[in-house]
Design a protein around this nucleic acid. Structure first.
Lengths: 205, 205
DNA sequence: CTTAAATATGAGCGATAGCTCGCATTGAAA
DNA sequence: TTTCAATGCGAGCTATCGCTCATATTTAAG
């Protein structure tokens, strides 16, 4: 039995329609997690919502966890990409602004689909991080770490810890707000920006 | 059929041994969530680990969710009680110290059993909050709200929002630290205290 | 057109989950 | 001691889940 059952798909799509199938499966998986939670998250349900037969699902994913792992990877990579794009767009601008933009991206990613974000996070830990996940996560965290490194700020704790805490606290606040059903995204942005900037000791503008 | 299947136990314990049974069931449920996660969290497994038959379990809980709900209630009540005790012990002392003590209690509660805390939180949302849960939660949040009210601090947002954010950010940081396997509780305390105090704008001592 | 690989299908198998129910045991009131 | 409610028991029912496999359809190469 191969070691990583989560990365070796049974078959790799070569034609266009099969790539579409895989796409549809991941999209359906996300939508079910968001709307039904873990209860309704079954392979049969995923296949049905994707408009695909259960057999097709198992041609591209060796098991249910592999679907989830692929979903986690895709989600993290999307996030990492968005954050890297922000840093390119904000090249040379003050830390305050960069952080504001990053927070907006992060909130946007998590706030509209709180249940999905929460369950993805849960599953990520349950599965353990495979190479793809780890790499995407490192890309994402690396963005903030580099920002802090170049900022010449006097950090209250070591760089690695601070980076992790900033992710964790904004994740926590967004999660609570999302699950509580808040709708004012701008207000949420402001609060997280405040939490982060004050943690970092960046003086108010 | 009664409306709240989560609060009406099939039978209420009247003898001593049945109370012990209920206790054992809740304790076993917590231990399984902590060590096995949702995968191993089955009513049969709970009964087995509690040293009780499956039939006994269903004499006191109408269904699986009722067990989980009772566990959530007990957990929140324990937390609320601990925080109230802290505030009694710290009567009249400066806000800094009160917050430090509250953080210690909160971290202590969540840090050693990160998986349990995380899953309890998840289930709490899935079940919706029944009366018992809501009351316990209000007790817990009320402690911090009153502390902030009496502190005469100039809060960056309205009282309710700030209270919620403080819980959320410390929850997020503790969760991340716990799941990552950190062991230095004092360091974690320091970081959360820092995050909270700077969010509140309390000057460094 | 022929042909073989790629892709799609879904009935259904084995395993296991939540939960029931008939019966055994225990405890306390009389 | 008798008696009955309270408590405890666990084999097993039903439903559903993850997943397989035999078969059908589509696509692209020659």
């Amino acid at each position: 039995m191969p070691a990583d059952t989560l990365t070796n798909p049974r078959k790799t799509p070569v034609q266009a329609r099969s790539s579409a199938t895989v796409e549809a499966i991941l999209e359906a998986a996300a939508r079910i997690l968001e709307s039904e939670g873990l209860e309704g998250y079954t392979t049969n349900a995923i296949a049905k919502r994707a408009g695909v037969s259960i057999g097709s699902l198992y041609q591209y994913f060796p098991n249910k966890d592999a679907v989830t792992a692929a979903l986690v990877r895709a989600d993290t990579e999307e996030m990492a990409g968005a954050m890297e794009a922000v840093m390119v767009a904000y090249e040379g601008r003050p830390v305050r602004d960069c952080i504001g933009a990053l927070v907006e991206v992060a909130v946007c990613h998590q706030f509209d689909r709180p249940m999905l974000a929460r369950l993805i996070d849960l599953e990520e830990h349950r599965l353990g991080r495979d190479f793809g996940m780890e790499a995407a996560r490192e890309r994402m965290i690396g963005v903030v770490r580099r920002l802090l490194e170049n900022s010449r700020l006097d950090l209250p704790f070591d760089l690695e810890t601070v980076t992790q805490d900033l992710f964790a606290l904004s994740h926590g606040i967004t999660d609570a707000a999302g699950m509580k059903g808040e709708t004012d995204r701008a207000h949420l942005n402001a609060r997280i920006r405040h939490a982060i900037l004050s943690y970092l000791g960046v003086p108010a503008s």
